[in-house]
Simulated assay, not measured.
Amino acid sequence: MSFDPPAQQPVYLPPAATPPRSSSGGFVFAAVGISLAALVGLIVLGYLALALGASVLVIGTLLALVPLAIVLLAVRWVDRWEPEPRWALWFAFLWGAAVSVAIALLVDLGVQLAAALTTPGGTSDEIAQAVVQAPIVEETAKGVGVLLVYLFSRTHFDGPVDGLVYAATVAAGFAFTENILYFGVSLAEGGAGELGTTFVVRGLFSPFAHVLFTACTGLALGIAAARGGGAMRTVGCFAAGLALAIALHALWNGSLAFADALAMYVTVQVPIFVGAILLTVFLRRQEVRVTRTRLAEYAAAGWFDAGEVAGLSTGAGRRAAIAWAKAQHPPRTAAVRSFIVHATKLAFTRNAIATGRADVRRLADERALLDAIVADRRAIMG
């Protein structure tokens, strides 16, 4: 991969007058959203401490970190080509781990109180809670978090892969807190034996269950973003994705309640999981194609040379560029990484502009990214 300056004088695409300033609404949303979600998280943590006890809470948390790490490593792999901003991912995680859990707990409390008032001495229907209430409430709560990222961070929500990343991050947060509760209750009520069984089932056999459910909502919103979603398209895609998420969640919980759980796991859940992996690989390849196609347009205008486009459009080329920087001048490695990130974001920004999905913020982002690439070149060349 070459980092020599392009031979011809580059021009902006499209020719730019003074571009409008990029909106800072996303950062304001992040600051407020993260602060509120963190506050709710402290309340949820206090509830868990009271319900489980400090020692059980610590054990449950340590065990819940195992499936969380598995899921987050997978999310990082999916998000590696065009990484999402950390603040958006932190909001997504905290929404899932705190706000979604709080909503589910409050609804569950309300249902139990309503059952107690309408049927004194009776108990709530646990199967109905698992197959109907939990899928509807939990998927709606998680889906709203993904929708908020979509609405307030449209610049960073380009397509299905972004929707998948945000949905998986929200789901990872929710599953983390839920696992703490399940592991803690298992230990408190059944001892180490029941805890071990629960950990194997939830932590090792099905760490991606919530991710698969909520991914339906994220992918649907990603499709809306890729097609230039107006209000009606956004609502329709969100509703369709949420309905599928609820259906899959109900199928999963129903298989545990009504059918042979192992048979359902092997014949239904595993094929769905494999299909999700294949879909993710396909979407990742689409991202590569978008990068190659749009950077070639900038190359025609003199911003990149053919070698750079080829290198930036493959994982091997990117790794080779980073290895080159480490071998030639290690301090320049950060500049090479920055060059790769900015070039990739530029390609997706250009794709939004070329497909008619851009607003004034995209034009401002394009100009800012081109300026950042110039600065990256200077840093690389020393």
Rank of each mutant, 00 (worst) to 15 (best):
S186L: 01
E178D: 04
A175F: 06
F238K: 00
R227A: 02
G230D: 13
G193L: 00
L248P: 03
F205H: 09
R227T: 04
I223P: 06
L212E: 12
G236E: 02
F238A: 08
A209Y: 00
A243V: 15
L181K: 11
I223E: 10
P207S: 10
F199P: 07
A209Q: 11
A239D: 04
T197H: 13
G228C: 01
G173T: 02
T214R: 06
I246G: 05
V170M: 09
S186G: 05
N253S: 10
N179L: 02
R202D: 08
C237I: 08
H210P: 07
L195F: 05
L256S: 13
I223Q: 12
A192S: 13
G236Q: 05
H249V: 00
A224E: 07
H249G: 13
N253K: 09
F174S: 02
I246N: 06
T217P: 09
A243N: 05
F238M: 06
L204P: 01
P207F: 06
A171T: 08
H210R: 11
I246Y: 00
F205A: 15
A220T: 05
V200L: 15
L219F: 12
T214G: 14
A226F: 09
L181Q: 14
L248T: 14
E178S: 09
R227L: 02
A250D: 10
V235M: 13
H249D: 03
F205L: 15
L244A: 15
A247T: 05
A188K: 13
G230F: 08
E178N: 03
F213S: 04
H210I: 02
A226Y: 05
A175H: 06
E189S: 11
G203T: 13
L195D: 11
T234E: 04
A240K: 05
E189G: 05
W252E: 12
F199A: 01
F213Y: 14
R233T: 02
F205T: 05
I180V: 11
L242Q: 01
L248D: 04
F199I: 00
G190Y: 09
L212Q: 02
G230P: 01
H210Y: 12
G190I: 00
C216W: 10
A171Y: 08
L248R: 01
C216R: 04
T234D: 07
A188G: 01
A175D: 05
G193D: 13
G203D: 09
C216F: 10
E194C: 00
G241D: 10
V235Y: 02
T177Y: 02
F199M: 04
R227K: 14
L244D: 10
S186Q: 12
V170D: 13
A245V: 11
G191D: 12
A240F: 14
N253V: 01
L187F: 03
G222Q: 04
G203S: 10
L187C: 03
T198L: 07
A224K: 01
G218N: 10
F176P: 03
L256T: 05
I223C: 00
A231R: 15
A245K: 09
A192K: 01
W252N: 12
I246F: 06
G229V: 02
V185I: 12
G254H: 12
T234Q: 11
S255V: 08
